[in-house]
Design a protein around this nucleic acid. Structure first.
Lengths: 245, 245
DNA sequence: TCTTTTTTGTGTAAAAAATACACAACTTTG
DNA sequence: CAAAGTTGTGTATTTTTTACACAAAAAAGA
C-alpha cells in the first residue's frame, strides 16, 4: 500500500533535495535536563546544582546540558547522568519537552526533560562544585528557568510510574526491609498505608526474595531483609499487578 | 532558600551574558508531527498524507511542520491541526520527542510527536492534496521517516490514556449508542468486552446522559442514544473510575 | 403478514480484591 | 527491668470483577 518508488503518477512538486530543504529550516538550541531522584531520610530528593548564570544567582537548577550535534536525546541525558554522578546503568526516561519562548534568559532554548532514579548511597558526590547536592522536593520552591515546573511534572510522572512499574527499588539499597519499602511508597505517593495490607500485596506478587538476614543497627526490633527479584520480574512482566493505593 | 540576588558570597565564574552563551549553543531543526486519530467503520484511523519528498515518494507521513521562531511546541501542533483539518477546539497532547540522527534524509531533524483525536464526520477533508486521507492503522505498514514508529507509540499512548480518561467521546458523534461506545473501546484496545459488564461500568459512573432518543437508520433494533456529561465530569474528575478491561 | 436476522436491554451468583482492624513478641535504650 | 518502638501475622466485611442467558424490538426479505 505504501511502497517506495511506486508506479503511481509522480506528483508535480516533489522535493528532490532534502538536504537543501532541511538547511532552510529554522533552528533552535536544544538541551536536556535531568530530574534525578533519590531517597534518603524518608524523603524523596532531587539532585540540583546552583545555576552558573548570574541572572539566576543563588537559584538551583537541574543537571542539564546542550544536546550535541548528531547526539540522540537519550544519549545526551545518559551523558549528563554519567558525567555528574558516575552512574550509567540506571533507569532514565523521557518525560516531555518544555518550550516556553522565554524560559531561558539568554533567548529561546527548548529542553527535553528526563527522569531518573538512583540510590543516593550508591555513589558519593565527590565534586560539590556549584553546591551540587540532594534537596528534598518540598524545599525547592524557587528554581532557575522553568525547572520548578519540570521538577513538579517529573514528580507527578514518577508518582504515576511507581504505581505501574517496580521503579522504587532503584531508590533503595539492594537489601531492604519492608518498612523501608513502605516508607518509600508513602513518601512518594504522599499517603499513609496500612502495614498489613501493604505486606500482603507484595507477598501476593511473590517478587521479593527473603534473604534470611536482619536489619543491623536499628534502634528497635530489626526486620527481615529482602531483595527484589529483578530476574523473575523481567521474565514475566505480567506479574506486576500494580500498586493501587 | 533559593532566593534571587541572595547575599551569599558570589561565585567566581558566574556567566554574565546569557545571550552570548545561548548563541554559542549548537542548534537543530525542530518539527512537530501530529498523529491525528479518528474512528470510522469500527476502525481506528489516522490522518496521513503522501510525503512530498522524492526520497519518500509514495510513502505516507503524518501531518507535521517546522516549529517557527518563538513558537511554542503546543502552538505549532495546534497550528498544524488547524491548518490541515480546520479544527481548533480539540484534544491535543504531547507524546514525546524523536531524535534519531538519521530519521530525516535531509539531515538531522528532531521532532516532537503530538496525539490528537477527532471525529471524522465533524469535518470534511476538503483538500485532498497529496492524498490526505484517513487510513486504518493496520494498513499503514511502511511510512516515511520514522513515522511508523511514531504512530505505533502514539497508539500505545492512546490505548493507555483512553483507559484513564474519557477521551473516546472525541471520536464519536455527540449522540451515540452504547454499542458504538463499546465498539470504540474494543477497536482501540483490541479486545472484546462483555456487553453487560461494559454497560454496568458506564452506568456506575453516571456520566452518560440518556437523551431519550433512539438510533435512526440502523438495520436492526435501534438502541438508545446518550451524550457524555462533560460538565459533570469536569466538575469532579474524581468520578472517572477508569476503564480497566 | 409472517419468518428470520440482528441487536437491545436486563440481573444474579461466584470469585477475587480491597479494606479495616489488634495483639503478642522482639530488640534496644535508659 | 521497665518503657519505647517496631516486627510479624489473620480474619471478617465490603467492594469490585467476572461469567453468563433470554425475552423483546425492529428491520429485511420472502
Amino acid at each position: 500500500m505504501t511502497k517506495k518508488n511506486s508506479h503511481e503518477k509522480p506528483h508535480e512538486h516533489l522535493i528532490k533535495d532534502a538536504k537543501k530543504l532541511v538547511q532552510a529550516y529554522p533552528k533552535v538550541p536544544l538541551t536536556v535536563d535531568c530530574a534525578i531522584f533519590g531517597f534518603e531520610e524518608n524523603k524523596l530528593k532531587v539532585l540540583v546544582i546552583k545555576s552558573d548564570l548570574e541572572y539566576y544567582q543563588g537559584y538551583y537548577s537541574l543537571l542539564g546540558d546542550i544536546v550535541k550535534d548528531n547526539e540522540e536525546l537519550d544519549q545526551a541525558a545518559y551523558r549528563v547522568l554519567k558525567e555528574r554522578t558516575g552512574m550509567n546503568d540506571v533507569f532514565l526516561d523521557q518525560v516531555r519537552a518544555f518550550s516556553h519562548p522565554s524560559r531561558h534568559p539568554g533567548g529561546r532554548v527548548i529542553t527535553v526533560a528526563y527522569c531518573s532514579l538512583l540510590n543516593i548511597n550508591h555513589h558519593e558526590l565527590k565534586i560539590h562544585d556549584n553546591d551540587l547536592n540532594w534537596h528534598s522536593i518540598s524545599s525547592l520552591t524557587n528554581m532557575a528557568f522553568d525547572h520548578k515546573e519540570i521538577v513538579d511534572e517529573c514528580y507527578s510522572w514518577l508518582q504515576k510510574m511507581i504505581q505501574e512499574h517496580p521503579l522504587g527499588f532503584n531508590l533503595l539499597p539492594e537489601k531492604f526491609s519492608l518498612r523501608e519499602l513502605q516508607n518509600l511508597y508513602e513518601a512518594i505517593l504522599g499517603v499513609s498505608l496500612d502495614r498489613r495490607n501493604f505486606r500482603k500485596k507484595f507477598a501476593s506478587m511473590d517478587l521479593l526474595i527473603d534473604i534470611n538476614e536482619m536489619e543491623q543497627d536499628v534502634p528497635h526490633r530489626p526486620g527481615k531483609l529482602y531483595k527484589f527479584n529483578f530476574e523473575k520480574y523481567e521474565k514475566n512482566k505480567r506479574k506486576w499487578i500494580g500498586i493501587d493505593f
